[in-house]
Design a protein around this nucleic acid. Structure first.
Lengths: 195, 195
DNA sequence: GTCTATAAGGCGATAGAC
DNA sequence: GTCTATCGCCTTATAGAC
């Protein structure tokens, strides 16, 4: 399994990210050792320190990149000038579609917040808030326009996000229901819950 | 801090449960050492082995007791012969009320499933399924009676449970909204989502 | 019921060779 | 870019004294 002649830095860097993500999701950050990550990558533990100065920095990088990828994907997805109802439909389907194919990163980003040291935590939380605000803004506009019936946009946003992200706890690829069908069901429930 | 003369086994046993719960919730099972638990309790690490044969068994006990307490409380709460709508209202308010005051146990029971060895995992999952089935049964009856509009009782149950349990991620005692008000908002959203 | 002492091994991280 | 070897520390769990 050892990587010898022809070793390539970029390949190793990507492998470290990939294998760390898988191992952290499966066993938890604290339960995974640098030796385990190295073994999955095919190098010795000391080689990891060429790419990341500490184990903590691997986690911070994984979580930060996950949130930045989410924000970039939603920026690409959103359409200004839509009705609140259309925007909420789009948001709900986007959220499921984006998260369902990134189960490990989603799991880590929620589960391992407590493993972050203060600086990393603050950075990740700031990115998370930006994303939450996208949904809050849709709900607030809908309430103002009389299109939605809700008293507390913040609470409604938290409720909807929890519901949508929850798909990841039970969805398995190749299950009885297609991703599209799942998006249909959740879209329906989300819309009805605020109308 | 050391417990000396007058030490009492039952007191220590309760303290081990309490402090483990707090520490596991705050730092994660793997990140907490037997020495840390012992220090919080006020004994040496070796004294813990009088009460639990392994660290793993502390976790299994905390999670199993949490699920059994939940099932017992719901058995006390439920009323047979209610309309599905009334039963769902009761379930939603009960779920929030019960979970909101047990944040540490709820967090652990979801987060540390992966830290359980196979036997413990199976036991806890079986209890969880029993609780999920209570909600599924309400939804299926409501759909059959034409009181609810939903195609997939299982998916709807997962969506509602995720939404309700999600309160714990943002609720803080003494916040702007009372527990009653929060129950009102979620009851409204849950009911609308299936009608 | 709790203590001290210890076994046996894993941890993150670093130095220096190639 | 990766290796071997190592430092100093922490880990779960047990033996035996009081």
């Amino acid at each position: 399994m050892a990587r010898q002649a022809g070793a390539n830095g970029e390949t190793t860097a990507r492998a470290i990210r990939q294998e760390s993500l898988k191992l952290f999701a499966r066993h938890g950050y604290d339960a995974v050792s640098m030796r385990q990550i190295a073994s999955a990558v095919g190098v010795q533990a000391s080689a990891l320190y060429q790419y990341f100065p500490t184990k903590q920095q691997i986690l911070v990088t994984l979580m930060t990149e996950h949130m930045e990828e989410l924000l970039a994907a939603y920026a690409e997805e959103r359409r200004d000038g839509e009705t609140p109802r259309a925007a909420l439909t789009r948001f709900a389907r986007f959220h499921i579609r984006h998260h369902i194919s990134r189960a490990d990163a989603v799991f880590i980003s929620y589960m391992e917040l407590r493993a972050l040291e203060p600086e990393g935590f603050a950075a990740v939380e700031a990115l998370r808030k930006l994303y939450e605000n996208e949904l809050k803004s849709i709900l607030a506009k809908g309430a103002e326009a009389g299109e939605f019936r809700l008293e507390e946009p913040h609470v409604a946003a938290m409720a909807i996000l929890a519901m949508l992200t929850g798909v990841n706890t039970w969805y398995r690829t190749g299950g009885r229901l297609s991703r599209e069908k799942i998006e249909d069901i959740y879209e329906d429930m989300v819309l009805k819950s605020v109308i």
